[in-house]
Design a protein around this nucleic acid. Structure first.
Length: 371
DNA sequence: CAAGCGTGGCT
DNA sequence: TAGCCAAGCTT
């Protein structure tokens, strides 16, 4: 094992990103919130969300008591929305079970929804000064390179080995060290084309010595970019309000408000796989009749299809969604609305009210364009 | 334990 | 363009 703490801390003092917003506070709530937002998410993306969220919900109590819709609206666009729902549950648990203080042991902290080992360690080190090691993507990459670990980074054994390494290397000043190793991973020891010439660990780095800097970590990701397709139904009433449904907590975009989805091949409206077809969402008389039938059966709405927007694509980690938006008007306005209000989990929103909700990014783009 | 879960930037 | 990647956790 090659020690790196001293070199890292020295480098960090002069080169670290000391100005990051969550490095200006000792409040465990703010530090925890930053860690949750930063999971799988880049610093620049988090900054505006962090400021807005803290401003609106500045304490455990405020978050615990907020309407879920407000929490999701503040998270809207940041992605991985289970984090937002878990964060609120965690705040409620902190208030109920931990007297409004972030727990002071890792074991207790890990009982909070959305808080795993690394997040718990990061908060305990930064908020309370505990000597706790983190192991996020940055730390993992730095350790793998500095020790030239060639085994599969995803395997349980390698992870176990990395955690042991992380704990052994983490000094008393874990707070500073954790920030330092993350900054090195973000600024110098980057996934591709690491800047070894500027690295404070170059003299001791086994990967550098063996010319493996670009090769490690090994076999990172396997990709499957299956394509699915769906229609989004933009149904407007006589007052220009649009109809949105709240999605169930489980699955993609959980808890967010969304336009109704439709596909002729799945009565449920679920997106369907669309292998490289010419035009999987073609507009014709049959489709328009199917849409009318769907709206009647599903929502009790008598509608007329006004037109189809151009095909668009939204890319997720695991698949890409091809979609077209269908503009729809009501035939029998007032009567239809009454039926819908009674039958549905959805609601009608004016343009401004809709945009204030927690919306998936592609839905927000659709509604912004037509507002 | 592998799959699921968002989005934006970079190459 | 299309693939790759980012301060992980849950089921």
């Amino acid at each position: 094992m090659i020690p790196i703490a001293d070199s890292l801390l020295t480098w960090y003092a002069d080169n670290g990103r000391h100005e990051l917003p969550w490095r200006q506070t000792q409040d465990s709530y703010a530090l925890w919130l930053a860690e949750i937002m930063l999971q799988q998410t880049q610093v620049e993306s988090v900054k505006p969300y962090y400021a807005r969220f803290l401003q609106a919900l500045p304490s455990w109590e405020a978050l615990a008591r907020a309407p879920q819709d407000q929490v999701l609206a503040l998270w809207s666009g940041l992605g991985y929305y289970a984090r937002a729902r878990n964060a609120q549950r965690a705040a409620q648990k902190v208030c109920a079970d931990f007297a409004g203080q972030f727990p002071d042991t890792r074991e207790a902290a890990e009982t909070l929804p959305g808080v795993g080992r690394s997040t718990a360690a990061a908060v305990l080190a930064s908020a309370y000064g505990h000597q706790e090691a983190i192991l996020d993507a940055n730390a993992r990459r730095v350790l793998i390179r500095s020790q030239a670990i060639r085994s599969d980074p995803k395997s349980t054994r390698t992870l176990q080995q990395l955690w042991e390494l992380a704990e052994a290397l983490t000094p008393t000043d874990a707070h500073g060290y954790n920030q330092a190793i993350q900054d090195l991973g973000a600024m110098i020891c980057t996934p591709r084309h690491p800047r070894c010439d500027a690295c404070p660990l170059q003299h001791s780095c086994k990967a550098y010595a063996e010319g493996l800097g670009e090769q490690l970590p090994l076999g990172l990701r396997k990709r499957t970019t299956q394509a699915r397709c769906v229609f989004f139904l933009q149904i407007e009433d006589g007052d220009g309000r649009v109809f949105l449904e709240k999605r169930p907590d489980s699955g993609i975009w959980g808890g967010l408000w969304c336009l109704p989805q439709f596909h002729p091949q799945s009565g449920s409206g679920q997106p369907v796989p669309c292998p490289a077809q010419q035009d999987p969402l073609a507009d014709d008389v049959v489709l328009r009749e199917q849409v009318r039938h769907f709206c009647a059966a599903q929502y009790g709405l008598a509608v007329e299809v006004q037109g189809l927007m151009a095909m668009q694509k939204h890319v997720f980690t695991h698949f890409q969604l091809h979609f077209r938006c269908i503009h729809i008007g009501l035939q029998e306005d007032l009567q239809a609305i009454k039926v819908a209000d009674r039958v549905l989990s959805g609601c009608w929103f004016g343009s401004e009210a809709a945009l204030a909700k927690g919306l998936p990014t592609p839905i927000r783009k659709i509604l912004r364009r037509s507002s």
